[in-house]
Design a protein around this nucleic acid. Sequence first.
DNA 1: CTGTTAGCGCGTTCAT
DNA 2: ATGAACGCGCTAACAG
Lengths: 347, 347
Amino acid sequence: MRPTVHDIAAEAGVSLATVDRVLNARVGVRAETRERVQAAVTRLGYVRDVAAANLAKSRSYAIRFILPDGDNPFMHALKAHVLQVGDPATRLGGLERLAVSLDPVPSLDVVALAAALDRAGEQGPAGIAVVAVDAPEVEAAIGRLTARGIPVATLVSDLPASGRRHFAGIDNIAAGRTAGGLMRRFLSGRSGPVAVIAGSLTLRDHRERLSGFADVLAQGAQALNLLPVLEGGDDPIRVETLAAKLIAEVPDLAGIYSLGAGDRGLIRALSAAPERRPQAVLLHELSPHTRQALEAGLVDAVLAQDPGHIARSAVRVLRAFADGTSFDPAQERIRIDIFLKDNLPPG
Amino acid sequence: MRPTVHDIAAEAGVSLATVDRVLNARVGVRAETRERVQAAVTRLGYVRDVAAANLAKSRSYAIRFILPDGDNPFMHALKAHVLQVGDPATRLGGLERLAVSLDPVPSLDVVALAAALDRAGEQGPAGIAVVAVDAPEVEAAIGRLTARGIPVATLVSDLPASGRRHFAGIDNIAAGRTAGGLMRRFLSGRSGPVAVIAGSLTLRDHRERLSGFADVLAQGAQALNLLPVLEGGDDPIRVETLAAKLIAEVPDLAGIYSLGAGDRGLIRALSAAPERRPQAVLLHELSPHTRQALEAGLVDAVLAQDPGHIARSAVRVLRAFADGTSFDPAQERIRIDIFLKDNLPPG
DNA sequence: CTGTTAGCGCGTTCAT
DNA sequence: ATGAACGCGCTAACAG
């Protein structure tokens, strides 16, 4: 049997209450007594039973997710996973006494986002997870939360200067570099210009992906020629227009890298003129549309981050911060997944 | 507050004991009483607090891992992760009352493996995780465990016919296909033969990878020519010999796919004659050696499965089986990771 | 068949 | 500065 507080108390010759005070670093214990208890703890190899402690405290972890209510498939999937994590019928929801709530916020509305952050803070949650937008208002709001001791994790798009405790998402510079590496390899030998379609360069993650990608294309013996970046606002319709024009006007186009959303438009443009499809097409995030395009050979590879992993990881990390315990960084690292048609997950 | 057994008892007008009997499907309750309790449960939306239940039962989950004590880096990493999962100081070890133990078994010794399985079963564990070897003795031993109601999960290499409840590892046919897809793309346009180095074709996972790879190379307009498979016994020294000979004797060699272990030998052979390196080199599993080779440009891509994920997943799944609860299949799917030099995890 | 009671390991009053 | 006693939500003896 693992030693319990009783064993510690007996070993140290004190009462349970004193052991508790020492274990929780509370005041009102003589230094000498404290020593005795600590000695007993290490001697017996005591480790606190967190489950029992939480039961006694009837603690529950209120975690708030603030997500853009945009309509892109990735955010939809993320929302679904957050709800699933909070479902009391599941392991995390049940066993781990979580109370997950979800606040939708108009997409890219920095004022609304800052307000939502402040409001969430009022409820005194155990932690807050938010898809950050790169704006001073948001940065300040996160700073206020942090100052009040509420751990904040950014999701998908980071805001390091805000003081957030954690970022759950991929390294977007590395993602861009990865796309660059694939592009080079898929185009081996061949020359011809490469196009990039972004959502908006005001988005930090898009800027980062672009910079990593451009970096890799420029380096090495045979640099690839990068066309001026197109911005489609993550909107399928605008993206389709841009892509169709691109394909029509650049006959020797070698590759396309779409680093934002709105890929439905790109896919439509590609399937409208299959004979002019460039040799390599790369895009981000798995959705029914991108899956299908990959399976159909319209797209060569999809870079992705797993929304289920992001949701679960944010919860685990925020819980750990709330408890003051540690977590396994390797487990919480969000991978840059590369999907070809052959390693697609089922479903 | 979430409703508790007390609320149910009050609502149904019975005692706690009766509620407990109904909740745990124990005998000795009149059908009519049972109905009343169940009605109260659904009316109040009761869900059992698993943590409290486990506390009361002072239940702990004994999970045994049976792993080959071979010296390859992947198995080493897997072992380390298993130990970490079992560490009482971690979340899983502490909060979740696990007692993980590790039985090493001589690599590829089917008799010893079967004996270890039988022995593990004697201890009455909550679950057993094992790296299966494709042999009738092993299959039978797993069958005996399953028959006794002990859930078994195979790790890395599967044995579906054994009756194991779960497999934690990648789909190796898909992994082979993925390697094939990368090989085709990396060799786009270029022809020339492609070599495969396996450990041993008596290993199910190696056979499966080969079959998926060969499949993809053969299909499509321009089939790639596959040389006869080389078997290096997962031994760096034998692999080095084979690879060196291959590189020397096949001047127009376009690609190499190493689908087993012993890659240290392959890497040595490649760096000994860098000017004759084929255009595409693919191999499996991340290790200090393969990382370095990737970074040095000696290897183009590494396919991998995350040993940390496998260890954690096996524990979660076996616990779920022991409890008769469900788990999230998407969370437990082991991904076929593709690493280029640009999306390598840190460390 | 059903109810009472005493813990599981810990946190938290309220006394001393 | 320290200790005794009760309760968190649930299970398991033992009564009845």
